[in-house]
Design a protein around this nucleic acid. Structure first.
Lengths: 228, 228
DNA sequence: ATTATGTTACTGACGGGTCAGTAACATGTT
DNA sequence: AACATGTTACTGACCCGTCAGTAACATAAT
């Protein structure tokens, strides 16, 4: 009644002005669409629809489709970076603890809804956008592996791990995590992980990997392979 | 320069009729193009050009682009299958030998020019062609992992390998191989394998994996196993 | 607190280029 | 000659990017 805006007649405006939020909305929608259909297969109208906008609005914030694609990759890679290097300070704990902790966070990221689309995108368009690919490979992959290698080096020094090349070991950690992440996003296809929960898969990954880098488990009791 | 003055002798036909070879030529060219640019991003004219044909010819052998795509995947998946299960009979050798032999052949296949494009294709279009994806996942991935699991099971029985879930171990083998295959196809990006040859990478993979499934290497080799 | 005026955010129809698919024509083969 | 195989030129649908127009919001004036 007392409201100057007529509540009965026009309660819902057809659209709202949200210039601050638009870029992120568009990027999120674009990641989803690009991830499903690829760069060439995605229509800007579909991105707009998913973001609840019209196509023209996208061009208010991004010069063209390709530049939007670049921003989608860059923004998400950067956010992955930040996520990756959060909580890096606790060097007090044992290398094993640091490693299992890292694996847990790594797995959480890989199983997040953003990883698989991003991975597909980068690998699908790696030829057409070598600069993006290089950025990703250097700033995320290599950087992450240096991080892991650091933990492993410490573990070797303390005698927790056997004497392996830390960078080889880092790749041997990342590879199964990534592949299992991809498989788990298509459980309906990949029967080998179909009946397993994310937690189970993580446990298997961790157990197997820890055994691979531990010097020897003869003396300790390691009968923890549980089969239902 | 194309003045056909020497018309009588051999006019050098502008093209030849090779109906037997065309399908495979087209499929090979299509795999390469699709692998680079994706399904939507590939022009049929580019496939034709790569195959040394004109676009219309493709339509003599395939009804449309999508069906060509399906055939590309199917044909190559089947050939991968055949490759995969060749030389499977030698059950006389030790499980370790069988496994290292398998890993060598697996790596050769993964490093062949056909694997990476096929992998990218399947993972890029997995949503749009669920039947193909399922076919691939079941007939190639699962089947291959059953094969590995069989070898590992035998190795566990003979005491060569520690007591792991053979299917977990199979996944833990396949995952690093596939990921390293992808990385190695983009050595210019992925610096962690940039300076390594394929043979080096394979050695690292094999050594690391064998250590992961061997029971213990504390007391040298010739560890007596009381099975009888 | 209503109206007038101005500004910003957004819309959606359209032009133009691209490309899958086709039809008309050409050449090799038998 | 008659057919099979291949090429070239063309069509029409589709989609990117543009822009004239409109809705939401802001501020000033009455």
């Amino acid at each position: 009644m007392s409201s100057p805006h007529e509540s009965a007649a026009f309660p819902e405006p057809r659209w709202r002005r949200l210039p601050e939020e638009r870029p992120q909305q568009i990027i999120d929608a674009a990641l989803a669409e690009f991830g499903d259909r690829g760069l060439a297969g995605t229509r800007l109208e579909d991105i707009a629809k998913r973001a609840g906008l019209s196509k023209g609005t996208i061009y208010l914030y991004f010069p063209n489709k390709e530049e939007l694609f670049r921003e989608v990759v860059r923004r998400n890679v950067v956010s992955q970076l930040e996520e990756n290097e959060r909580r890096l300070g606790e060097q007090a704990v044992s290398a094993t603890e640091a490693l299992t902790d890292y694996m847990r966070r790594y797995w959480t990221f890989i199983r997040s809804s953003k990883f698989a689309p991003l991975f597909r995108l980068i690998h699908a368009e790696i030829h057409n956008f070598p600069d993006l690919a290089r950025f990703y490979a250097e700033e995320v992959v290599a950087r992450g592996q240096r991080l892991i290698a650091g933990i492993i080096t410490r573990g070797i020094e303390t005698g927790e791990f056997r004497d392996v090349d830390p960078f080889v070991a880092a790749r041997m950690l990342a590879a199964p995590f990534v592949m299992h992440g991809l498989w788990c996003t298509h459980r309906e296809c990949f029967t080998s992980v179909a009946k397993k929960t994310d937690e189970q898969v993580l446990d298997e990954l961790m157990q197997f990997y820890l055994h691979a880098i531990q010097p020897c488990t003869c003396n300790s009791r390691s009968k923890s392979v549980s089969t239902q």
